[in-house]
Design a protein around this nucleic acid. Structure first.
Length: 483
RNA sequence: CGCGGGGUAGAGGAGAGGUACCUCGGGAGGCUCAUAACCUCCAGACCCCGGUUCAAUUCCGGGCCCCGCAACCA
């Protein structure tokens, strides 16, 4: 029997900086869903990668005295390293927008949009500040002037670009949102994008003059232009599946996309319009997460409040880092984190919570049981899995509310701690050994459940717990106390 | 009236038309299987002003304040 296919992807981080904690959170969340769906017996295609073209990279590379290719090779490698660091499924696909195959796919995308009459040439007005000798975007200007050079007037320069007929898709996009009320999760993001699209769409430039900025995928049949980086980058979600050679995307697309709130428009409007234009299926669902701030402010090098994924793993370990980001970063809203809070959560929930519970149960089990009821391992445990259908848990996972899903697990942790205190098996064992053994077996049963439930979130920890139960041996401290 | 989110104990979060919950921190006690862990109890809160209602912190209106985004910036 053919397994059901399940596709999900992160956004591709732009490689002008080292991996950010926000991206770490995004890919960990996606990984949890991937592992969970895999556990349900589905075939998984899990995609990530790096977005490597565009002006900013070109500038940064030049600044660093490197060719753009050298520059992006270095950064892409850095992003690839984060996969094992964060315990991400090792069979994840990693697409680079500088891959030859991706370039072919982006050009095919372009041709299809052209064929549908949605790409045309027009004058592109560029705002230019003579003081900076740079082009400026509207959001960089204050009162129509460059904040750094208020004495200069902004100059409007015109150049010929290709434009994408975004405006044509207003109705189609609105219909897509109407027909599919969970197209964007959470709901308030769907409302946000709906009102944005209702406000009217403007065609936008999707090419750059090669003479000014050559670091992009060549526009088909026009040597003077390269593609604007967004047009190229968004195509990765399907190029990674082997499209266009595989016209049916190998059966993977349409899929689920994870993104940050800064990507709402690009993912849920621009990309969908491109797909519609190319007459390809629109995405299945888009999950939008919030931002992570630190100490009430945006993380920035100058403020010195940056918390990097590497530092987290160094301090807490891979699984604990996953836990902290999954449980304590809000699934939809912005979250503020500090080292103090992270330490607190680590100690309260992992050291004193799950880690300690595992120790106390296994110590009793090791001392009073001759052997584990689960010594045969997998099959017996899978039987437990079958009555581990926590409804709330599954609902939470389906709506990407991993916080709530984890809370469900920790509720069991709390229950068992309480139950042990009340039943006092360590006292009972002195009078009624048989009864004490039965109690301990119940605790073990729940610990198996916890071990199974925790698997998508903390795969290594899950394995350690289940192995310990199987061999009836108390493990080394799961989560060492911070010094 | 550009769009959207939000203001809940000392801190960080959840929540719902009617006893406001969780974690950390503070105070008192219990237990000893466990990583000085675990359990119990106590103190402590719903931005302001109107309205709807038998009843609102929760719904509606207004105000004050905070935070994102405002498109070609990935």
């Amino acid at each position: 029997m053919e397994k059901e296919k399940f596709y999900l992807t992160t956004t591709l981080p732009y490689v002008n900086a080292s991996p950010h904690i926000g991206f770490a959170t995004e890919i960990i969340r996606a990984d949890v869903i991937a592992r969970y769906q895999k556990g349900l017996g589905k075939d998984i295609f899990f995609n990530t990668g790096t977005d490597e073209h565009g002006q900013k990279i070109y500038d940064k590379a030049t600044e660093a005295g490197k060719t753009p290719q050298e520059y992006v090779d270095g950064y892409s490698a850095e992003f690839q390293k984060i996969i094992p660091l964060l315990g991400i499924s090792s069979d994840i696909h990693f697409v680079r927008t500088t891959d030859d195959h991706h370039k072919i796919a982006a050009q095919e995308m372009w041709r299809r949009c052209v064929a549908n009459g949605d790409i045309y040439k027009a004058n592109h007005q560029v705002k230019y500040c003579k003081g900076c000798e740079l082009e400026k975007t509207d959001s960089e200007l204050e009162d129509g002037k460059c904040p750094l050079h208020t004495t200069y007037e902004i100059e409007i320069r015109e150049e010929e670009n290709y434009f994408f007929r975004f405006s044509k898709y207003q109705e189609a996009l609105l219909e897509l949102y109407r027909k599919n009320p969970t197209f964007v999760v959470p709901e308030f993001r769907l409302k946000e994008i709906t009102s944005f699209v209702e406000g009217g769409l403007q065609d936008f430039s999707v090419s750059r003059l090669k003479s000014k900025m050559s670091w992009g995928i060549p526009v088909p049949d026009d040597e003077d232009h390269v593609m604007y980086v967004w047009f190229d980058a968004l195509t990765n979600y399907i190029s990674t599946t082997g499209w266009p050679e595989k016209e049916d995307f190998g059966g993977w697309w349409p899929g689920i996309q994870f993104a940050g709130k800064d990507n709402l428009r690009q993912q849920s409007a621009v990309w969908q319009a491109m797909l519609l234009s190319a007459k390809l299926p629109t995405s299945k669902q888009i999950y939008i997460g919030g931002f992570i701030n630190s100490g009430g402010q945006k993380m920035s090098k100058s403020l010195g409040n940056v918390i990097s994924p590497h530092e987290l793993v160094e301090r807490y370990g891979t699984d604990a880092t996953r836990y902290l980001l999954l449980r304590h970063v809000h699934p939809y809203e912005d979250t503020d984190i500090t080292w103090e809070r992270l330490d607190e959560w680590y100690t309260a929930n992992l050291v004193n919570g799950l880690g300690n519970l595992t120790s106390r149960i296994l110590k009793m089990s090791e001392t009073y049981l001759d052997k584990s009821p689960y010594s045969q391992g997998v099959e017996v445990m899978n039987a437990v899995r079958n009555d581990t259908k926590e409804r709330e848990f599954e609902y939470a996972l389906r709506s990407f509310n991993l916080q709530v899903a984890i809370d469900e697990i920790w509720r069991i942790v709390g229950q068992i701690d309480l139950q042990i205190t009340h039943e006092e098996p360590f006292k009972v064992v002195k009078e009624d050994k048989k009864k004490a053994k039965e109690m301990i077996e119940v605790y073990l049963y729940y610990l198996v459940r916890i071990g199974l439930l925790v698997e998508p979130f903390m795969p290594e920890t899950s394995k350690t717990i289940l192995d310990a139960i199987k061999t009836n041996k108390k493990p080394e401290n799961l989560f060492p106390r911070l010094l």
